[in-house]
Design a protein around this nucleic acid. Sequence first.
DNA 1: CTTGACCTTCCAATCGCTGGAAGGCGCAGG
DNA 2: CCTGCGCCTTCCAGCGATTGGAAGGTCAAG
Lengths: 147, 147
Amino acid sequence: MNIGEASKASGVGAKLIRYYESIGLIPEAGRTAAGYRVYSGNDVNVLRFIKRARTLGFSIERIQRLVGLWQDRNRPSAEVKRVALDHVAELEAKIAELRAMSDTLKELANACHGDDRPDCPILRDLAHEDGGAHAHHNGCHKATQGP
Amino acid sequence: MNIGEASKASGVGAKLIRYYESIGLIPEAGRTAAGYRVYSGNDVNVLRFIKRARTLGFSIERIQRLVGLWQDRNRPSAEVKRVALDHVAELEAKIAELRAMSDTLKELANACHGDDRPDCPILRDLAHEDGGAHAHHNGCHKATQGP
DNA sequence: CTTGACCTTCCAATCGCTGGAAGGCGCAGG
DNA sequence: CCTGCGCCTTCCAGCGATTGGAAGGTCAAG
């Protein structure tokens, strides 16, 4: 099985397979006399594993650990779970970050006329706000913040 | 005002200011006889605008358009709104993607004992699943998919 | 004059790919 | 045998948005 066949069988893409080898995610493949890489069915399984893990957003570093655990017949499932939950925590943090951005922008866009006039709360927010916290009804007066 | 002062005033970071200049996001700053960059209060406002826009996750490319619209007194707010809503759409798409990853992983992790035993539904999913769709009760039988 | 804090430029790394160029290999047809 | 096509090989470069470091010039104070 050469790299093109392994690519078709795994769905991973020949260049990506070579890349994964170069960074040590997969071991160096065997070679034919001519220098062609040779793959086994098991190699294809590893590639599929990696592909699925990437689909779930795991970093290469974590996938390395997951592959290692997968190969280890004596792995404690707790370790796998910890890797997964660490990743979940990062995903949730990222989601919260993007959620905050999106909500803020939706609010600003909602307040924008969206016509030919230049007045725009979106630009006003970007230009003026020091931190960007939306002020609702209590507006701009600095209130009890005297020096 | 040199780059360090502009950095402190804008909160942007001297290296990043130079980078923004190098990619054309901000115009080339004036220079002293010795070659030091010189900034005005307005430059600082632009930097703050950029910083806030980055906080909201806008790409450099979109920020360029936003800065252009900001400077244009005759801008139609509709254009600003469109840039913002395009970005919101991308944010929502990304959120949905991460949400799907996180939910799948939470489900798998929830089904994982997380103890010393090697059996683990997370690894089973990564290893075996062709697409990763969770099958619930209708399991593995290929049903009516005969050739 | 020396010190130290600034400034300058350029180069490299991050992360996960993806593309291209240049050259070798395998197999078919003429 | 030669040619062509499609595969394989390596290396290099770039994406986006920074961040870091090295090597060297400048400024103000002691």
